[in-house]
Design a protein around this nucleic acid. Structure first.
Lengths: 275, 275
DNA sequence: CAAAATACGTAACATACGATACAGCGCTCC
DNA sequence: GGAGCGCTGTATCGTATGTTACGTATTTTG
């Protein structure tokens, strides 16, 4: 299987006449930039004539030179976007406001996941994917959007997902619907909200399993939570960052989706075997 | 000191007319590959005419299009050969389901900010901090939580911040309140929502300045936007990731806060005393 | 509200680029 | 040693590409 033009060349360079081989070697040596220039420049760099370059690309299987260039560009574009070759930020010359913020955020994420095992996430995902119970999500003043974000996704792949919005009295009334098989996902970072704590306690008393997203200092709700995800929030800003928690949420969404997909496939197979 | 064309663009994008700005945004979003294609392709991708592309590169200081392309190629060549790019990802020890997701997300953020200059962010922050006008925020199906998150913060440090929620007809009626001095922050990633496009167009017609958060393929709203933030969204999951956009939002919140600190500090103190 | 200036696209233009025909040269193989 | 074949470069051609001139639409300014 040949996927890149470089491999293609390596494969066929043996069958090429001398001048075309020089073209090939020149291209490999300055891969792939020379190939993006004009035929004239390419030929000059290789020390051969233009037609030789054209015969060279024809031998590689391309109809014409532009097609060859497009292929090179596609390859380059793919390479630029694949993680392996991505370049790091050059230490931002402005030294401006961006870099410290971004760096801190990236560190927060790494640190957050370092304290988070695959197993933990898998457990939570399994719990969330368990369709025997309902899933409720709620957040604090700044974190409620995260609850909404998660709810928006989970609600698509399974039934019985509810985001608790509005007044405190509103969700308090929903407690009556909650029981042992249900899950309550709470987002709560400093400054922790009393209303959420009260709510969590009551839910806990009813046997609801609580999944808590909080910061590294742990919301008091942790006391009632079955699972606690502690994200780093410190950034050089007046506000705390919820970005790490956001990424954990996305990761969980992905894991739950994958899990339900697998079950769905099994289900379909079962159904087919029953026919 | 300006070393890359991307920086050059960020530096001058403020002084460009609308169509050239679209060209600039298109180039930044698909940097640098679009710039290596023909003028016709570039212009088609940007939705402008060929002469606009040529005026655009002329404004950047290039004598002609080929010179511009050569410069891009040189930049790319330098990038490909610099040792930094050869550093492979450390083979994640966990190896589980977490790592690929986290790694991709971190890459997305680095990549997003690589295409985002300090100046761009500062411009947007300045616009958001301008207290002469109102600020409206809205998002799509999955991104509306981001709009809420941003609104929740901005609303604290300045008055006249409104999150547009609920039915389409609801926000459409708010158009009457919007004018030249106002800012509309829109979050729109694939699959782009027609309702948002329609709303953006009408707001644009009223002279509202639009700040668009979108993905690298650019929502059609980019056509009406004064500022475009193109975040990377690709992750190994069934869903796209909004994490990069989330971090950009947080960065902007921080920048706006810093800008308003003088006035904002008083306001925050007042608020706390009201609780 | 009028007038000037700026921005933008359409269409015609020129050039530089890739493609091709052909001839010279060297090499191989009778 | 001569004939045939393949490789390579020179010169020419057609065309796709970048460029420019100009008219219309839009915005800005007095």
């Amino acid at each position: 299987m040949i996927s890149s033009i470089a491999e293609l060349i390596a494969d066929r360079i043996g069958t090429m006449p001398a001048s075309e081989r020089r073209a090939a070697q020149t291209l490999i040596a300055n891969y792939p930039m020379i190939g993006l220039k004009t035929v004239a420049e390419f030929s000059a760099a290789a020390g051969v004539s233009s037609p030789t370059i054209l015969r060279f690309v024809a031998r590689l299987g391309f109809q014409n030179y532009p097609e060859f260039q497009s292929s090179l560009q596609d390859e380059l574009a793919a390479q630029l976007q694949s993680p392996a070759t991505r370049t790091l930020n050059p230490p931002s010359p402005g030294g401006g406001t961006v870099s410290p913020m971004l760096e801190a955020t990236l560190d927060n994420m790494r640190e957050t996941f370092r304290h988070l095992s695959d197993k933990q996430l898998a457990d939570i995902a399994a719990r969330l994917a368990d369709r025997r119970g309902k899933t409720f999500l709620i957040g604090g003043r700044f974190t409620d959007p995260l609850a909404r974000y998660m709810a928006a996704h989970l609600a698509i792949i399974q039934p019985d997902v509810f985001h608790l919005a509005g007044q405190e009295s509103m969700w308090r009334d929903r407690l009556i619907d909650m029981g042992k098989r249900d899950v309550l996902v709470i987002f709560d970072i400093r400054r922790y909200q009393d209303s959420l704590l009260r709510f969590a306690e009551k839910a806990h008393q009813r046997g609801v399993q609580i999944v808590l997203f909080t910061d590294q200092w742990l919301s008091p709700i942790a006391r009632f939570a079955r699972h606690v995800i502690a994200g780093r929030t410190a950034v050089p800003s007046a506000w705390d960052s919820s970005a790490a928690l956001f990424v954990v949420a996305e990761t969980l969404i992905g894991a739950v989706t994958r899990q339900l997909e697998a079950e769905g496939a099994k289900r379909i197979r079962e159904m087919e075997s029953l026919r």
